[in-house]
């Protein structure tokens, strides 16, 4: 998967997994903070998202600090997925 494809998948996952009704995948900007005021995800949302991402991409988010870095935005998530899937392949 290319970086753009990963980002597209992530945007769809965010909207679908968290059942966001007032926002479309296209509206989830690349740098939009996932825990910021616009999306405002709480700890259970973040947990559900982590599980979905781990299952979809076969990666593992190991602790709160890694989660905070990876789930900063769609861009940060895509980087996390790319780095960790490449590490698994190498």
């Amino acid at each position: 998967m290319t970086r753009e494809e990963i980002k597209e998948t992530l945007r769809e996952m965010i909207v679908q997994e968290l059942r966001l009704e007032e926002i479309t995948p296209e509206e989830v900007g690349d740098d939009l903070p996932l825990t910021g005021a616009r999306l405002g995800f709480d700890s259970i949302d973040i947990l559900e998202l982590i599980v979905a991402i781990e299952r979809r991409f076969g990666v593992r988010i190991r602790d709160g600090a890694s989660a905070a870095r990876a789930l900063e935005s769609v861009n940060a998530l895509a980087d996390f997925v790319l780095v960790n899937t490449q590490e698994k392949l190498s």
């Binding site: 995800f41 700890s43 973040i46 947990l47």
Partner: peptide, 14 residues
């Protein structure tokens, strides 16, 4: 503490 850190779930999962 719930409500302070949205990443608390990740910490507990780990």
């Amino acid at each position: 503490w719930i409500g302070e850190d949205p990443f608390v779930g990740a910490e507990l999962l780990s």
